[in-house]
Structures are given as C-alpha cells and as structure tokens.
Design a binder for these strands. Structure first.
Lengths: 251, 251
DNA sequence: CGACTTTTTGAGTCTAGTCAAAACATGTGG
DNA sequence: CCACATGTTTTGACTAGACTCAAAAAGTCG
C-alpha cells in the first residue's frame, strides 16, 4: 500500500499579526466578547497585553504563580500535567478564541498545568484584577465564561470515564473521534487532523504509550478506518471509530 | 490483630429539616451566599424549592433534560457516569454547601452525569432562569460560582493524570488521601473516613475493580498505613500514603 | 439464628507496558 | 542532489500488573 505524502502545511504566524491595530479585530471575534459593542471591545482591548510564543515554547509552567488569564489569539496551545515519573499527560489542545490559565487559582496558588505553544502562537494576557473588572462590568461575559468552564469540566469528566473503563483501543478511537470533531478538516478522501500531533501526543492524551498507540493505529489503518503518517492522521470511517469507542469492536 | 468494630454512626435526616423556616438558615450558610445580607438571602430563598432524597435514590439520571441546578443542604450526594459496559465511574462525592447539575448545559442538553443520594439527603433546587437571575443581581456570587467550577475542573484534571500514569496502588493511595482531606474526621487512633463508602465505590473512583481494591487495601492494612472494615477506612499514616501516591513505594 | 451483602482470597489469563532494534522521514550541509 | 544526522514511527520478544471467574469468609440486619 503506497503511503501518502504528508498533507500537512505548516502555518506561520507573522509577528505583525499581534500588532495593536490587529488585536481589536481578534478580540472582537472571540466567543466571550463577540456580542459586545465596539466601544466595549476597545475598552477591553486596553486591558490585554499581547505576547508571542514560538512553537514548542512554554507560556507558563505548572506551579508558576497564577497571575494572568490567557486567550489564544492565533495558533495552537497544549495544556499538560507532568507526573513525578516523568511521564506527561496532555489535557487539552486549544485554538483561537479559547482561554487558559485557571480562573479558580487566579491570584492565589500556582497554575495546575503547563501551557506550551504547539505552533507559533499569538497570546493575549490579562491580569486577574483586570479580568474581574470586565466580568463585573459585563454580566453576560461572565455567563459565557461560566459556560465555557462548565463545558471543559464535562469534557474532563468524560476523559475520566474513558480512562477508567475503556481499553486502549477504545480510548484511542474515542480520542481520534474527539479530535476529529474539534480539529478535522474536510479533504478529498476523509477528514484530516493536522495539528501537528505525534504518536507521543496521542499517547499522552490516552494514558498509553507510544508503542501501543503505534500498534493500535497500524491495526486501524489496516482495517481501513484511518490513514496516517508522521504527525498527521486522516479519518476515513468516523462511524467505525465511534463504534469501537463504544463497543470495543468494529462490527 | 483484632479488628475494630465499625465506628460508623449513621446520620438521619429529619424531613422537618427541610421545612421552610429551616431553609433560610441553610442557604445563609452556603459558601455561595454566606456573604449576602439577610434580605438578599430571604429573596434568594424564595427561588429555591426543596426536595428530599432517600439514601440510594437517584436525584437525576445522565441524559435527563437539564432543568435545574442543585445544592446539597444536608447529606451526601455522589456523581456517577455509566459506561456502555455496565461499569460505573464515581466522579465525586459532595456534601452540604456544594452544587451539582452542570451549569454549562443548563437549559440545553441533558445532564452529563447521574446524581445519587449516598445518605438521606435534603436538596435545594432552582431553575436555570432563576439561577441566572441571582447571578445577574449578585456579581460576587457569580465569581464564587466561577471559582467553584474552576476548582472542580482542576480536581478532575488531577484525576485524569492519576488515571493516566499511576499504578493501581498509587491511584488508591492518592484517592484515600484526597478523601481524607475532604472527609476525614479526627479520632483517637487516626483519621476516620465515614461516608459510608464501599470497596465498590473506591473501585469506581480509581478505575480499578473491587478485587484489586481489596487486595491493595489488605496490603496497606498489613503495612500499618490504614485500618479498615465494612464501609469505612481509618487512615493511620497519611504521609505514608502520600509517599506511595507519588513514588509508588512506602520508603 | 439464618439470609443477605460485602469483603477477601485464589488461580489462571490477557492486555498493555518495557526494553531493544530496525525502518522510515525530514532537514542540513557539503 | 546525495549522504548523513536526527527525530519519529514501527515491529518484535518478553514481562508484569491487573482483570476475570469462582468460591470462601466475614459482617450486618431482621
């Protein structure tokens, strides 16, 4: 079987993208603020600072004092936790418009996870005090934030369930389904997940090892469910993967 | 070694406890509302309905349309998710003052977990619309709620990490530590966890089986770390358990 | 004192982890 | 454009931790 060449095209973030005038546009499109008047957005904009992050660079580490809340303006950010054993856990991958830097510990203890730029990123940061100011002035924003946190909690609980009772096959299938729904891009022959994301990342998301992920994905590939290569996956049969994640087998 | 008799004393909830006049007191003590004026609390009180739940009874099921938010007034409530395999996952055990019934899906999809009374309970419920009214009128309450949800998210992410990289020994030790910090009561010879909570519950919290929990706890007991019996555990060496949860061994 | 539930113990099996090495991609510099 | 260095993925052999099934033991309650 001829293996397809990598369909991944790298995206570049021009530093100029984070320039002052561009920020208004980005902030105005964020889910939290989209509904606000231009004046409010301009006012909010003044409370944010921008910050670039090169791919693979850390934005903050687990345990760092939690001073700011962050919004992804452009690029992809991954949230991780490190275990004493050295193994790492990938909690989530975020894209433009999503927040990170826990609200609960803001101003108090340290961050509970490490944030790393998966691609070149443009990040907006705001201090805890200023963020509270926005929330106090805009109750509707607060409700949106509350919903966002709640959704993330539900998602996390779903992962807990998967880790508790699913086999490695099921966890990997379920994770591919989840990634497809969030990150999939329609292509000629299926849905492409282009993050870039390696076997190592997938192992860290599913609580398995690189070798297990490789073996399982080879099998899925042999069954025609997916096509895969270095740092990308294309989903050919989403229904089949969903069936595996729920029942444990293809048929 | 002589096994101690069960130190568990059952608590009874008098239905009268949920009477109208008693509610004011309870609501006024809840973390979300404690700081408000008596008038505000009286006003908020009118928006809540009360509801009893007998031990083992369900308050709602996963998938039920999410119409209300709940507060535990008295008793203990457990939140579970069920897998297709029939195995169940215990997400959290709540006590007086804690909320449940996800805020994110309120008014939208169904609940993402099942809520079951672990003991006889007194529950306060409020409709989505009325809860939003409170939040809009009291921004400081909203901030407290936001913090509470954020803390629960962090906790859930910690469980994800534990399930991902810890051995069964470590997960069980870590869970005992967590339960002790939340539920432990000082006694002559250690800290008692009196929920009531069985091997089955502990297995559902740690993603293991009843047999594994029993074997591991027997070993912990033999090493003098804990004493245990039917539906209760007493922690004799919290530091030892913490060491196991982090390093994997006692020394 | 039974009937029932919960917990413990045992034996066998299997999933997934570990260690090791080869195959494959990708990018670099000559 | 090729050869090499580096990082990623695949494959293989072995091992061990945890699950399953089964049955006995210990508590609890009417």
């Amino acid at each position: 079987m001829p293996r397809p060449k990598s369909p991944v095209r790298l995206e570049w973030v021009d530093p100029a993208v984070c320039s002052l005038d561009y920020r208004l546009k980005i902030i105005g499109r964020l889910p939290f603020f989209r509904h606000l008047s231009p004046e409010s957005i301009a006012e909010i904009n003044r409370l944010f600072e921008d910050r670039d992050a090169a791919a693979e660079g850390a934005i903050y580490f687990e345990g760092d004092p939690a001073s700011h809340l962050y919004l992804v303006a452009m690029g992809k950010v991954k949230l991780m936790r490190n275990a004493a054993s050295g193994r790492e856990v990938l909690l989530d991958i975020l894209r433009g418009g999503e927040y990170f830097g826990n609200l609960s510990t803001l101003g108090g203890q340290g961050y509970s996870e490490t944030a790393i730029a998966q691609t070149d990123c443009c990040i907006l940061q705001i201090s805890a005090e200023n963020f509270e100011k926005i929330l106090n002035r805009h109750p509707d924003v607060t409700m949106k934030v509350l919903k966002a946190v709640g959704e993330r909690l539900e998602q996390s609980q779903e992962v807990v369930k998967q880790l508790s009772v699913y086999t490695a096959d099921q966890r990997i299938a379920a994770t591919l389904v989840r990634l497809t729904k969030k990150w999939g891009e329609q292509r000629q022959e299926g849905v492409l997940i282009e993050l870039p994301f390696s076997r190592h990342d997938l192992a860290a998301m599913t609580g398995t090892t690189v070798e297990t992920v490789s073996r399982v994905m080879s099998r899925f590939s042999g069954e025609g469910l997916i096509s895969t290569g270095r740092k990308w996956v294309s989903i050919n049969d989403l229904g089949g993967l969903e069936a595996i994640s729920k029942e444990g087998t293809v048929n």
